[in-house]
Design a protein around this nucleic acid. Structure first.
Lengths: 147, 147
DNA sequence: ATATTTGCAAATAATTTGCAGTCGA
DNA sequence: TCGACTGCAAATTATTTGCAAATAT
């Protein structure tokens, strides 16, 4: 997305497109790295030295309320964020902690409506070892990196 | 499960069945209420006044490592625990915060293996309103209780 | 000029850790 | 007796809050 598009996208969701908001959304949009609030803060701080962590938290909270990002509750310690709000799953590598998008069609996953419930969010995630860490010839990193 | 069975179950998973460990496992087993560490602590404190929260945390960590409980990462604030380690989903009501087990067969959910990944855990959860809160004639509680 | 956005510093809350006392085989 | 289990208190860490300063319309 271009900056112009992001402005429109945010506005269409009732978010005034301030400079910091655009930059944070752009970050999520382009990196697609499912970062924590702190990762966003640390990375953007290099480019925007005046940025404060409170603003990151404020912005993420607003984005969440307005539905332009979703929370990924996959890591015990910290919430991760995703600007892709379409239905998809996630995989967290227990070795490198990278989070990968999982296309639902690829998994063949589907489910019917839950009787009697009003479902507003559906999430699914997996944990294990990603192809990169699996393929590593040095298996020690898998053991040593254990949290 | 009887206390005797729990002792055997814990031992078979490499856990020495101390009094507190048995009581905590029994709590999870019988209530099936997907509690937080604090909920377990508060409830058991009434019956075991000498219990400390550290012991609850220690025990849950051990249970997790030994695979007799799973973590439910569905609530942003706190980790919930489940002694049912079989594959099943969860539903968190955004009104009453109750967590309900979802039988995978009921949802028709299934998925094929993820190519190239070594999957050791699969989780899925839903959020929305449960039948009880949906059926309530006083809709205000749904609005007022909003976190 | 007026409402919104930002940011510092302090507060909160879940969880972890260090360490000493206690208990059970 | 000896190592495992327990628990207090302090530390850590992610997140939130109060409020004042900066900014935008």
């Amino acid at each position: 997305m271009q900056t112009k598009e992001i402005e429109q996208y945010l506005e269409s969701h009732g978010i005034k497109p301030s400079y910091h908001r655009i930059r944070i959304f752009l970050y999520l949009e382009t990196r697609k790295n499912h970062p924590s609030a702190d990762q966003i803060f640390q990375d953007l701080l290099k480019e925007i030295p005046t940025l404060s962590k409170t603003t990151v938290y404020n912005t993420l909270k607003l984005f969440l309320e307005k539905g332009v990002v979703i929370e990924i509750l996959i890591h015990e310690k910290e919430t991760r964020y995703d600007a892709d709000t379409s239905m998809h799953g996630h995989f967290e590598c227990m070795n490198c902690n990278q989070i990968t998008d999982i296309n639902m069609d690829d998994t063949g996953l589907h489910f019917k409506k839950l009787e009697g419930f009003k479902v507003s969010e559906s999430h699914f995630y997996f944990k294990g070892l990603c192809p990169v860490c699996l393929g590593s010839s040095d298996k020690r990193i898998i053991i040593n990196n254990k949290k």
